[in-house]
């Protein structure tokens, strides 16, 4: 695989090196990003290197900006009035906020799984076929293949293979969330953003989704926001700690949880606040 970081100016290489212990390809590069909701300064000078085909976890107390940051990566914040972003975010070296970038195309490459399962008001099958269909696929046979492959990929196939025509609302919360992951996989993204994907789920469903992430990271770059520090420790290779709109520390997950460099990080991961 081509190492994208080698094409970057040396300062960025330094940044990449300072945040990771093992050299990997960079998927998303975030440089000096500031973000505003109208007058509120939500993100302050964020710099992160998100490695390819690994799980990157973002932790921090409520309101620290980690979800806001996640949503800048697929420009979901564009939908909110009065938001402004400065700095640069690039995906495989392309500036995401360039005027020429087609947001629709970007969101196809950077998929997202939300905090609460949000299946569409249609059948299980149609939920998954929705993405491929809006991107122009009508071939029934190919759609069938995608539905089966993604449902297997999200470990839901065995449970729903006999009721694909049933409404997605009839599934349990954990099943709905796995359906939403399958739906995201169906458009074949390169990056999957997960915004507290397990916070509305019971421990068993959480466990299954964590297993799933372990499988998915072979093919996808995953960025997950989580309130659950054990979860971050279990699933991720890199962890970023956010506090009051700043990224306090970013590094290998082991290092963040065992020997954090910052006092704030140590206090948070040891449960002193948050």
């Amino acid at each position: 695989m081509m190492d994208v970081t080698t094409q970057k100016p040396s300062s960025l290489q330094d940044l990449a090196r300072s945040q990771t212990s093992t050299p990997t390809a960079t998927k998303i590069l975030v440089e000096n990003v500031d973000f505003y909701y109208s007058a509120f300064h939500a993100l302050k000078t964020i710099n992160i290197v998100i490695p390819d085909r690994q799980v990157t976890a973002l932790i921090g107390p409520s309101g620290c900006g980690k979800s806001t940051f996640l949503r800048t990566l697929n420009r979901m914040n564009d939908l909110i009035d009065g938001t402004k972003l400065t700095g640069k975010i690039s995906l495989d070296g392309e500036d995401l906020y360039d005027k020429r970038v087609d947001v629709v195309d970007l969101r196809k490459r950077v998929g997202m799984v939300f905090q609460k399962p949000n299946p569409f008001p249609m059948s299980i099958y149609d939920n998954i076929a929705y993405g491929p269909r809006i991107h122009g696929l009508t071939n029934r046979k190919k759609l069938n293949e995608i539905v089966e492959r993604t449902l297997r990929g999200s470990a839901l196939w065995e449970e729903v293979k006999d009721k694909l025509k049933a409404s997605a609302f009839a599934l349990s919360g954990g099943q709905q969330q796995r359906l939403c992951i399958a739906r995201t996989l169906a458009v074949e993204p390169e990056v999957i953003l997960m915004d507290e994907p397990c916070s509305a789920l019971d421990p068993n469903s959480t466990f299954r989704i964590e297993q799933l992430m372990e499988d998915l990271k072979k093919d996808y770059t995953i960025v997950i926001v989580t309130h659950n520090m054990q979860q971050a420790a279990r699933v991720s290779q890199r962890t970023g700690f956010f506090l009051r709109g700043e990224m306090k520390e970013f590094g290998d997950t082991d290092q963040i949880f065992t020997s954090p460099k910052q006092k704030d990080t140590e206090d948070y991961v040891s449960g002193k606040f948050g």
Binding site: M76, V104, G111, F120, Y130, I134, H135, C180, V187
Partner: peptide, 22 residues
């Protein structure tokens, strides 16, 4: 719910597709 619209946009749907189909 906003999550319905966002779910659709996150899959790369346009505004019209989102309105019509979701």
């Amino acid at each position: 719910p906003r999550s319905q619209r966002e779910g659709s946009y996150a899959l790369g749907a346009t505004q019209w597709e989102t309105i019509k189909q979701v």
